Amino acid sequence: MARWRLQSTTAWVQRIRATGRVPFLQVVKTSVAAVAAWFAADLLIAQVPPIFAVIAALIVVQPSVNQSLGRALERSIGVIVGVVLATGISLLFGSAAWIILVAVVLSILLAWALRLSQQTSNQIPISAMLVLALGAASPIYAIDRIAETVLGAAIAFVVNLLIVPPVLLEPARREVRELAEEIARSLERLAVAASEPVGRSALEGHLVEVRLLRPMLARAQVAVATAEDSLALNWRGHRHRGELAGYDDALVSLGVLVTRVAGMTRTMRDHYDDSLHHEAVMRQIAAELRRAAHDLRIRFVLDAPDDASDTGPLLTAPLVVVSPHPDHWIVIGSMLEDLRRVHEELTAD
């Protein structure tokens, strides 16, 4: 029982903790935006503590400038709708405590009817509750809170725009290169299976490893999409857009290679026998697989030897195919077709 409770507690702790910290620069920017929003709203609007301005600043500072703009719009629209709704309800029904619950329910229904985004939908009832809880029934108060929110959101957006806006290119670079490296290793494993006897357990292991390429491809696509988002509206982004476009193109080729390598690995597992490596063409296929792995590393600038970039791609020799054993023609034909597509992707301009 005690062990179960410890595991349960650990699971809940993991739910509330992130796998890594946000960059300290973002913490600084959030703090600067919150402080600036407080003093600006206090100077320009005054009357009450500028809570709405600070909340807007805290929400709007995001990992990218593009996300900050989106959150600024969501926060502003949500606050405008919520404050107007709360003010109208307060003027019609007074300031009884049950009015807050009515406002919350109406806010949720209104957001649903308008098909608003999740962030905007959340802001409407929150803003309505805050206005009613603070006892505001005047249109002037509503206008001030809207102006305060827009001011806080604008300040946070400008802070995120001007203070070293993030360029999230390194995760995209790393994910693309790791994917290409793992594809190269899969090609080399196939080369070994094509040139020498390997056990059934090794082939099963190859199939398990090649299935991991799909999640790696998905992570690389997410990383590239995140990098693209970080460059939008970013004055530091123009110098990186060419490199990012290259990663976009790379993912198209790597996606094809993932499919082909998975197909070759499955074919080898399904049709392999210990006499397959005696076929002359299989030794040629093994050599082509190693060339493909070499060329893949060069094309995507991976952890190759320092002089690898000087050697250039390895030339492909024509394959001479004699009539294979009747038990082997399926695997040989399938491997040749997949290998042809692999070389097409690696030699494409």
Rank of each mutant, 00 (worst) to 15 (best):
R341I: 07
G333W: 13
A218F: 08
P63I: 03
L85P: 15
D144V: 05
H240I: 02
S117G: 15
G205L: 09
L134Y: 06
R174T: 06
E175N: 08
S195V: 06
A41W: 13
A40Y: 01
A11S: 08
A232R: 15
L73W: 14
R17N: 12
S117I: 04
A11Y: 05
P171I: 11
S76R: 03
L114E: 05
I59M: 13
V342E: 01
Y247N: 02
V105Q: 04
A72T: 14
V61Q: 00
P197E: 03
W4T: 13
T267L: 15
A191D: 03
V65N: 02
L162K: 06
E196V: 05
W235Q: 14
D144K: 10
W329L: 13
W112R: 14
Q67C: 00
I298H: 00
I51D: 06
I124P: 02
R21G: 12
S253F: 00
I155S: 13
L58C: 14
L233I: 09
L161P: 00
S201I: 10
H277M: 07
R173F: 01
A220P: 05
V131F: 15
E204H: 09
S117Q: 12
L116Q: 14
V22Y: 06
L106Y: 08
V150T: 15
Y272T: 03
L302G: 15
V79F: 02
P215M: 01
D270Q: 06
D144W: 06
A280W: 06
S107Y: 05
R75L: 06
G242V: 04
V176E: 01
L315F: 08
A11C: 02
L207E: 10
L203W: 02
V158T: 12
G263P: 01
E279S: 11
V222Q: 13
A304E: 12
A348Q: 08
Q221L: 08
V104C: 02
T10V: 04
D349L: 11
A97T: 05
A287S: 10
V83E: 07
R5E: 09
